[in-house]
């Protein structure tokens, strides 16, 4: 997969161990890539080190083994090229909405004067629909609005890629849906490369082009990569469930999370496993034109 041309983000042999070397690593020998302009989701149960992977990609944490190559260069720390949207929004509470975004903008372009910074920040406040709330402090905003500010802050530095750590998990369902739509719209408009961590299956199907499935930790591995064969322009939150491929993909993911993520070692024993040559599965296509041998996915449970 990674012969001549590397993807924008290339994760190569990543392991992370906490504590002394005798301990089982949280995850081990991960190999995957995220292409330019791709929306990639990583899905798995809590405890499999999802956030740690994102922190390593962000440069906030160092892997025990392996490396992350971005744009053909190994990362060795945080960078303005990789913007992070944090799970708990992480806004600076003593700054206003404008202040929070301006802080990021001045970090990116230190030579800009105040007016230019404000103009630039205002553009991104408008992009996330918060015009009129520039002067408010985070404490005066609802959870959804705070996360919008987080998104605006990340986008305002015009990064090469966005890293999102369960950005919507703390929000109520209605707000979450609205924000998902907006992220979809913004990513389509800006052609942004996104790596997102989630444990929400529907969120992954709605947003992601490819979904990386992780087994349970400790010693978590990537089981396979699911290609979302539903084209982006056919994915709408309101009628996602009417799409012919939807249930096939969803069932495949749920089946993985419920059963296979626990017992993946058994699968390895039966079928073998090469972490560098992961299986690419397209459950959606099987549903549209099922080949003869394919086991109906809706029945789920394995014997």
């Amino acid at each position: 997969m990674q012969q001549q041309q590397r993807p924008l983000i290339s994760v190569e042999g990543l392991s992370r161990r906490f504590g002394d070397s005798g301990q089982t690593p949280v995850f081990e020998d991960l190999w995957f890539g995220v292409d330019r302009a791709e929306f990639c989701c990583l899905i798995g149960h809590s405890g499999c080190g999802k956030t740690t992977i994102l922190n390593v990609l962000a440069g906030l944490d160092q892997p025990t083994e392996g490396a992350v190559i971005v744009d053909n260069r190994e990362i060795d720390g945080p960078s303005l090229d990789r913007a992070v949207i944090f799970q708990g929004h992480a806004l600076l509470p003593w700054l206003t909405v404008m202040g929070n975004i301006a802080f990021a903008v001045t970090s990116r372009w230190p030579s800009w004067d105040r007016a230019k910074v404000r103009d630039h920040a205002a553009k991104f406040i408008e992009l996330v629909g918060l015009t009129g709330a520039e002067g408010k402090r985070p404490a005066q905003l609802s959870g959804g609005m705070k996360q919008r500010v987080g998104i605006a802050r990340a986008l305002s530095i015009q990064p090469k890629m966005l890293l999102m750590d369960e950005p919507f998990s703390a929000l109520d369902a209605l707000t979450r849906g609205m924000l998902q739509d907006e992220v979809l719209r913004i990513c389509a408009a800006t052609n942004q490369t996104v790596f997102m961590i989630t444990h929400d299956v529907d969120e992954a199907i709605l947003l992601a082009d490819r979904i990386v499935l992780m087994t349970n930790g400790p010693g978590a591995k990537i089981a396979e990569i699911v290609v979302n064969t539903m084209p982006r322009n056919e994915r709408h939150r309101n009628d996602l469930h009417r799409h012919p491929q939807y249930y096939a993909i969803r069932n495949h993911l749920v089946e993985f999370l419920v059963n296979r993520s626990r017992a993946f070692d058994q699968e390895i024993a039966e079928h073998g496993y090469d972490p560098r040559r992961l299986k690419l599965v397209k459950p959606g296509l099987a549903a549209v034109n099922p080949p003869a041998e394919v086991v109906p996915l809706t029945t789920g449970r394995r014997q």
């Binding site: 945080p78 992070v84 944090f86 992480a90 600076l92 003593w94 970090s107």
Partner: peptide, 29 residues
């Protein structure tokens, strides 16, 4: 000072002095 605020500062590649005055000082004030 909350780790996540320091992480924000790190991901924005803010230098140590600017972090001290713009993040740590107001947070600890």
């Amino acid at each position: 000072v909350r780790k996540e605020w320091l992480n924000v500062s790190r991901t924005l590649e803010v230098g140590p002095f600017r972090t001290a005055f713009k993040v740590i000082l107001p947070a600890a004030a």
